[in-house]
């Protein structure tokens, strides 16, 4: 199975040793991590540790991480992952870390479609959910645009910076009309 994906504008690929700087640049940006919620990285050693964890979680079949490299510039603009694989219920969670200026529907639609295609077709997943904070309005808008369905709220999931964080639950099933339309159109709506 080929885990590295090739879209029109991006290489959606696994990280390698030279990516420490890219990971640090991405996850050291407050606008990228604030809705997860996490503090931005402050030293490059954290990116090295993160890279190790990405490998370990993949080897344990718990998660798969891809960096998104723009073909035209070589710049890594995002990291996307499927995590919390549940092989019994055939489900996983989608997580996106992207530079704010790269979070446009046109850009993200291409990336999310590639990863969901792998999830449904190669990994035989049935349900992919996306947990988002309501304050992350731009990503909520993306989820709605792509046709993810809002299912409700998970309350007080984690504590961060003295506050309990709620998550809005969005999901897409492999037999949802919106996913079937995406397959037919070879991509998500971009607006």
């Amino acid at each position: 199975m080929n885990w590295n994906l090739n879209t029109e504008q991006y290489y959606v690929r696994f990280a390698h040793e030279e990516d420490i700087e890219n990971i640090y640049s991405l996850l050291g940006t407050k606008g990228v991590v604030k809705h997860h919620p996490k503090s931005p990285m402050v030293v490059e050693a954290q990116a090295m540790d993160e890279a190790r964890r990405m490998v370990m979680q993949f080897e344990a079949k718990e998660a798969a991480f891809w960096l998104v490299e723009e073909k035209a510039t070589g710049k890594v603009i995002a990291r996307i992952r499927l995590q919390k694989f549940n092989w019994v219920s055939a489900s996983a969670q989608l997580v996106l870390d992207a530079f704010p200026d790269s979070k446009t529907p046109a850009q993200i639609a291409e990336i999310v479609y590639a990863v969901l295609t792998l999830g449904y077709e190669d990994l035989s997943l049935h349900r992919i959910e996306w947990l988002l904070q309501s304050t992350d309005t731009r990503t909520v808008e993306l989820a709605n645009t792509f046709g993810f369905q809002h299912e409700g709220q998970l309350n007080s999931v984690v504590e961060f910076d003295g506050k309990w964080i709620d998550y809005q639950v969005y999901s897409m099933l492999n037999n949802d009309d919106n996913w079937q339309s995406a397959i037919k159109n070879q991509g998500f709506p971009k607006a």
Partner: peptide, 22 residues
């Protein structure tokens, strides 16, 4: 607080929604 669609597998090919209470 939520209704999670097809969250629980009930057989090889069937799934059930789950109601989350909190």
């Amino acid at each position: 607080s939520a209704r999670l669609r097809d969250f629980r597998r009930t057989s090889q090919t069937e799934f059930s929604d789950i109601l989350v209470f909190n």
